[in-house]
């Protein structure tokens, strides 16, 4: 089977993923008063993580459409499998 090139980020069920810059990441952790290990996680092998080329340790901001709040930001820290 050959590889089919589908841009999953274009799918309507895939929310926008953005890698936070170092400053943004620090600001977020400060705002939440937590360490990185207390953030929800996402595997480096996740297709969207690969797509936006995030590395383990990076924090990803996910922009979700919410029926109750309009826009809802979710943050996850990238972890490696090993």
């Amino acid at each position: 089977m050959g590889k089919r090139k589908v841009d999953i980020s274009k799918h309507e069920l895939v929310p926008e993923h953005i890698v936070l810059s170092e400053e943004e990441a620090n600001e977020l952790l400060k705002k939440l008063n937590i360490t990185k290990s207390q953030l929800p996680k996402i595997l480096a092998s996740d297709p969207m993580v690969k797509k936006i080329k995030a590395k383990p340790g990076d924090i990803i901001k996910i922009v979700r459409r919410s029926p109750t709040a309009g826009v809802y930001y979710y943050y996850r820290v990238v972890i490696s499998e090993k």
């Binding site: 929800p40 109750t68 709040a69 979710y74």
Partner: peptide
């Protein structure tokens, strides 16, 4: 463990 599950309860905090 104090790990965050949701950043705002119910997405709108209501």
């Amino acid at each position: 463990r104090y790990v965050i599950v949701a950043f705002k309860h119910g997405e709108d905090g209501a």
